[in-house]
Design a protein around this nucleic acid. Structure first.
Lengths: 148, 148
DNA sequence: CAAGATTGATACGTCAATCTTC
DNA sequence: GAAGATTGACGTATCAATCTTG
C-alpha cells in the first residue's frame, strides 16, 4: 500500500534529525553569546573572501541560496549594525556592491570562535576519520544537481 | 591557526546541503500542490497515530521538538482549517486534548501522496541499499543524546 | 511556586508589485 | 521587455508576560 521503502524514510528522518541537532547546537551557542545568526556569518564569510571589491547582491543570492528579497532585507539589517557597507556598482547602474567592514571582519572572527568548536564537538568529534570520509562521500550524492 | 579540521567542515557543509536540498524539494512539491507545510504533516501524523484520545499539547511539543507557543499557534491555525479539533483535558484542568478530524486524516493522506515520492526520488532513489544502510548508521551517531 | 497553555508586542520571512537601468 | 534590486502588505516566529490549575 505504502510504496516508499522503510529505508528511504529512515534516511530522511535521520538526515533531518542530525542536521537539526547540529544546527540547534550552533544557534544556541551563538545566541547565548549574544552573537548574530549563522546566516549572518555566512554572508560575512562570503564578503570577507571577496576582498576589497566586495560582491553584488545577486552574487550573494547565488552563493547562499537565498531569495532576492532575503538578501536585500538581511543586508539592510547588517548595514544598520555597520557590519557591511554598500555603494552603487560602478559597472552597472542597476547594481549595488556590498563590502565587509572592519567591524564585520572582527565579528566574523568572534563568531567563528564559538561556531567552529560547536561543529567540531557535534560532528567531527563523534566520528572516526573513516566514517567522516564515508559520510561526506555519500552525502555528496544527495545534493541536488542543477535542475533543467 | 584554525583548529577545526577540514573534514569537520566538509561534513557540516554536506549535511547542511543534503538536508536543505531534500527539504526544499518537499516544500516546493507541497506548495505547488497547494498543500500545507511539512510541519503540518508532522502534527497530523502524530495525531493520527494517537487515535481517538488524541494528544496533549505538551506531548506534541516533545514529539516535534517545537516550543510551546509554536504548538499553540500552529494548532490554532489547523483548527481554523478544521484539520484538528480540541477539547479540555478530562484528567487535568490545565490541559487540552487535540484530535485529528476526518478532514485532517484525508489531508494527511493527500499530502503523503506528494511527499513520499519526493523523498524517494531525492534520497532512497539515489543510493544503493548498502549506502543507505551505511548512511543511516553513521547519521545515527550524530543525533544529540539527551543533555544533562 | 511549578506546569500547562495562551497572548501582546515585535522581529523576521514571503509574495507580489514596483522602480530603474540594461 | 528582462535583469537587478527594493518595498508595502501580510503571514509566521519569537520572547516575555500572563492566566489558570496542580
Amino acid at each position: 500500500m505504502d510504496n516508499i521503502p522503510d529505508q528511504t524514510m529512515a534516511i530522511w528522518v535521520q538526515l533531518f534529525r542530525a542536521q537539526r541537532s547540529a544546527r540547534q547546537a550552533v544557534d544556541a551557542a551563538l545566541k547565548s553569546a549574544r552573537l548574530p545568526s549563522l546566516e549572518t556569518y555566512d554572508i560575512l564569510l562570503e564578503l570577507d573572501r571577496a576582498g576589497a571589491d566586495g560582491l553584488r547582491a545577486f552574487a550573494l543570492e547565488a552563493a547562499l541560496l537565498l531569495p532576492q528579497y532575503g538578501v536585500s532585507r538581511l543586508l539592510e539589517r547588517l548595514r544598520g549594525q555597520a557590519l557591511v557597507s554598500r555603494r552603487p556598482s560602478p559597472e552597472d547602474g542597476r547594481g549595488v556592491r556590498f563590502r565587509i567592514t572592519a567591524k564585520g571582519r572582527k565579528m566574523r572572527t568572534t563568531m567563528w570562535k564559538v561556531y567552529g568548536p560547536v561543529i567540531q564537538t557535534q560532528l567531527g568529534g563523534r566520528l572516526s576519520k573513516a566514517e567522516a570520509r564515508t559520510l561526506a562521500a555519500i552525502l555528496g550524492k544527495l545534493t541536488t544537481p542543477a535542475q533543467p
